[in-house]
Amino acid sequence: MIHFDNIGMRYGMGSEVLKDIAFNLKPGSLHFLTGPSGAGKTSLLKLMYLAQRPSRGKITMFNEDVTAAKREDLPKLRRRIGVVFQDFRLLDHLTAVENVALPLRISGGKGAEIEEHVEELLTWVGLKGRMKSRPPTLSGGEKQRVAIARAVIKRPDILLADEPTGNVDPAIAKRIMHLFVELNKLGTTTVIATHDMSLVEEIGADRLHLQEGRLHMIRAGENTPKLKEEKFDSLAFDSGKLDQKEFGPKVISGDDMS
């Protein structure tokens, strides 16, 4: 589903923020993306949601070489990717319903059909009474759920979440994480960037660990090794070799989100 081959990335003329990244994520897999601040997690996610192009190497997504894709071909690929941004990135002048409906409208969905679908999802994430509210009037947790609803409304093939629990209390963080696991069970390839190791341990999925721009694979249940990245080569691995059972996802219902 996502294949990175010897990827390097730099901003402008700066030094590389990602170095020799190589991995392969199988369809329907779930991974955490961990690492200290500044390690390159957001940059790696940007490459995955096609907001940046790498400085070198090749990225294959949906069996297409996206590094060579024309600019006009990117929108249709992006529509297959759901993204939960760290800072939500909701449109403040639109209501919760309108925000969540955007991906459907962009894909050419019809009005009444969209509304019904969006309201159903917002109810499911516990925002039934907040549908007409605009983001500035929503709490952090509510915004987070609107952002998640927007990311998953189209049942994306890939779901990427950047610190999705960074702005919410532990209880909501747990529920959000369980929602991702649920979506993953439905077949969405999921990558969650987080600092919250307790949640990582609870879910028990494999980790893509970034340190100083280099990628290290840590299997579920293993501790983070003390990495001296200058001496480590990045690891290319195949997530398909992993035992998915070890992720231990919990199935949650819509009621759990309220």
Binding site: Y49, A51, E72, P75, R78, R79, L91, P103, I106, S107
Partner: peptide, 12 residues
């Protein structure tokens, strides 16, 4: 920012 979000959501 709005335009960037629209792009990320797949807007042409």
């Amino acid at each position: 920012e709005t335009i960037a979000i629209m792009h990320h959501l797949g807007a042409q």
